[in-house]
């Protein structure tokens, strides 16, 4: 399951990344394999999304969220 497929309020554990370039940037921001990640809300126009991870709130586009595989 991908992060972009979560429903609002649902959460998952980060398993791996499908894109190396994005993974480097996401890991810097605290999205590491094993971290719990929760979908908080979606922007009014459907993109980007806001997630809770590593104790803070992060927003990213759906395309970027699709590179995060969850357990």
């Amino acid at each position: 399951m991908k992060l972009s497929q979560l429903q609002i309020g649902q959460s998952g554990i980060i398993k791996e990344f499908t894109d190396l370039t994005m993974s480097v940037k996401l890991m810097e921001m605290g999205c590491l394999p094993g971290e719990k990640i929760k979908l908080d809300r979606i922007a009014p126009l459907g993109c980007p999304i806001a997630v809770s991870v590593a104790g803070y709130q992060l927003s990213l586009r759906k395309r970027e969220a699709a590179t995060i595989e969850l357990i």
Partner: peptide
């Protein structure tokens, strides 16, 4: 720069 959007939403 590749266009991406990874931004902190501060409290």
């Amino acid at each position: 720069q590749q266009g991406y959007f990874i931004m902190e939403l501060p409290v």
